[in-house]
Design a protein around this nucleic acid. Structure first.
Lengths: 317, 317
DNA sequence: GTTGCGTATGATATCGATATCATGCACGGA
DNA sequence: TCCGTGCATGATATCGATATCATACGCAAC
């Protein structure tokens, strides 16, 4: 920048002002300097600016990147979420620093201007650990009292599935999933509340792993117990697929005897046989919203939790 | 740091040395200062250090985060790759700056010490654009002459599948996929080479989308044409699953009449009916290797492309 | 003429770390 | 006593940007 100033015959500070579009410099000068900077291939030194401004212009995103079964954030979705975050932050001159919980002690993370937590749903203790950093923080998941949370409206999701079952005349619905997980708990709550309004009490089958095998297993244990049921709300598509497979093997038709709805609407859901009904979340939008909220908080604007609408995709199950 | 120095009754520079484990300071002083720093909750100012050292201690990772069908990096895998990268970089005091191709013009990216490109396989033009930055750069994909590339050994993958088919006595194998994609092309090459050694020439069915529907469609067009075949190597698991489904519908049994092998060994592969044989890549290790190579290049050590072994998981198809 | 105001630009200090060169001191040998 | 050597520490300059306060100038009003 000093060089630029010398070439242009002005002072460093004028260059600085010109390049940051300050109205303090004459428009002609500004344009001339910007042009010159471009020609000479000048690159702003981010560290220097960050040092002076006492901001890192960085938001740390904490996400689990190891394969795991207990997560709601299955498959391509965390990546889409990251995409939304990245796009929004970049547009505002911030950058995305990616880490895991383990890596979160690194100096660079501690120096971030804000924090976004993904996929920590089942570990509130872990979330609380990050409070100590005293940074603006937004969490993806189910709303609680302690933090600013962005998530899709899991309760609405459960509600919609319940209504769907009612409409189909189902009277003995089952919920499969892990209600210890806050987001799943919300789905269950929405589901139960809507059913209760119709005088129906669903059965809960707890399953912690969100795999096909786990879904199959759930149906088997259900049949073994001889409990009557005519609808299954599985809180992941894989569970749903496993359930359908098991039901077919056990001689019960889907959707003839039993209706099944999954969650997440993964790409495979549409081409499953039969095509799986599922609840779809808008992950990209979720990412955008997460980013927008941290940015606001970084600028000392107060923010609140917010949920995004979900959509029940009715296919053939 | 100045405060720390004052409290401890030494100079700033001694503190600096002590905290970076420099052998120049007396061991006692060093330990005392480190202890003190810890007690006072001292946090290194990353920007200041970066400014002085003229390093950002940051590696930019460029990855496509929008859902798309044309990619090899399906589903949870990019995330696992990112995990490997993140872990290795963090362990060496570097941090991961995540962006898309679009966001790569941001100042922070240009200031990175190195670059890792993921999922750009089919866009060599895009890859070349990044050369201009003049940064140490490592690319995930298929080896070429122009860059340092890390990837799994797609050729070996193709080879292994061919050998597998030969062992099963198959004589008319088909390859399904998009050979314009460099990684897929490698798989095809390995496949063809190994078969040629046995006097067999496979058929190629080109399909660009890596979806179930696309796999189904490929089998239909194959049967329509009346071409004889007894083995299918699909370059993604979804293609393979679609193919198996179509074959069943068309009255051909798997693996009785036709053997099918997929690629990536996604979690679903094992619980598919029948359990799908597939080629597995070690993504985590790939990430580690990518990171290790950029770090080496940042430290001016020369690096070369490298491929990672893959493993054919033989199940029932 | 001078006072005041607005506009455009500049001088200097500063953010918090580290590299370089200098200094202080103890010790042993001549 | 003096000097060289090694070890521990310090003074100062520096990385590249921006905030703050100062300055220069033109022009209008009195």
């Amino acid at each position: 920048m000093a060089d630029l100033a010398k070439v242009a015959g002005v002072s460093k500070i004028t260059v600085s002002r010109a390049l940051s579009d300050s109205p303090l410099v004459n428009r002609e000068t500004r344009e001339r300097l910007q042009q010159l900077a471009h020609e000479l291939g000048y690159k702003l030194n981010v560290s220097a600016r960050n040092l002076r401004l006492r901001r890192s212009h960085t938001v740390a995103v904490i996400v689990e990147m190891k394969p795991s079964h207990d997560r709601t954030m299955f498959d391509p979705y965390p990546l889409v979420l990251l995409g939304g975050i990245s796009q929004e932050l970049t547009a505002h001159g911030y950058s995305v620093l990616l880490t895991t919980r383990q890596g979160a002690t690194a100096a660079a993370v501690q120096a971030a201007d804000g924090l976004i937590l993904l996929g920590q749903g089942s570990r509130q203790d872990a979330v609380r650990r990050f409070d100590k950093l005293g940074l603006p923080m937004v969490v993806w998941g189910a709303p609680g009292d302690e933090h600013v949370v962005v998530g899709s409206d899991n309760r609405q999701g459960g509600h919609a599935v319940a209504e769907h079952f009612i409409r189909l005349g189902r009277r003995n619905p089952v919920f499969v999933g892990n209600p210890n997980h806050p987001e799943i708990f919300e789905r269950l709550t929405g589901f139960v509340d809507a059913l209760t309004a119709h005088g129906i009490k669903p059965l809960l089958i707890r399953r912690d792993e969100f795999t096909l095998a786990s879904g199959t297993d759930a149906m088997h244990s259900l049949m073994d117990r001889g409990v009557p049921f005519d609808a299954v709300f599985a809180c992941s598509d894989l569970l749903a697929m496993g359930a359908i497979r098991a039901l077919n093997q056990l001689g019960r038709s889907v959707p003839g005897d039993v209706s099944v709805v999954g969650y997440d609407d993964m790409p495979l859901a549409a081409s499953f046989l039969p095509p799986l009904s599922s609840v779809r979340q808008d992950w990209q939008e979720g990412g955008t919203l997460l980013a927008r909220k941290v940015l606001a908080m970084i600028n000392d604007e107060p923010e609140q939790s917010e949920t995004l609408p979900v959509e029940l995709i009715v296919r053939e199950t």
